[in-house]
């Protein structure tokens, strides 16, 4: 079987790509996609940990320690979907206001 660390490594790589993307990109939609990438890295990590739990798998059911990781993934996906709805709504509202969503032009608020 593929060792756990490969999955963790891939997750870490995805998470880093996402985090760097959030910092360097200037378009809110791309930034948002990078955040989604981070969340997917989290999901992958959760599933890998859930699959490689040290507790043995009993016949006829999943133990709590396996289940909670998988449940967490479901919840993360649901929350991510809710965030998409709100986030795209906010980006739409800004686009209607100024026909442009570039982050560098969001500089009204400073002190």
């Amino acid at each position: 079987m593929i060792p756990l660390y490969w999955y963790l490594g891939l997750g870490l790589l995805m998470f880093t790509v996402g985090a760097v993307g959030v910092v360097v990109r200037r378009n809110p939609i791309v930034i948002f996609m990078c955040i989604e990438l981070m969340l997917n890295a989290v999901n992958l990590t959760f599933l890998a940990f859930a699959r490689y739990q040290p507790t043995p798998l009993p016949i006829g059911g999943l133990p709590d320690s396996w289940m909670s990781g998988q449940m967490m993934v479901i919840f993360v996906m649901a929350v991510a979907a809710a965030e998409v709805a709100v986030g795209l709504g906010i980006i739409m509202a800004i686009f209607r206001l100024r026909d442009n969503v570039d982050i560098d032009e969001m500089n009204l608020l400073k002190g």
Partner: peptide, 25 residues
């Protein structure tokens, strides 16, 4: 503008929070 900033940085931070939870798990 404040909503967008809050939203982007807030979801960025919850990404970190979740990644932390994953490792605690």
């Amino acid at each position: 503008e404040s909503a967008l900033k809050y939203f982007l940085l807030g979801s960025f931070a919850s990404g970190f929070l979740l990644y932390g939870i994953a490792f605690v798990y």
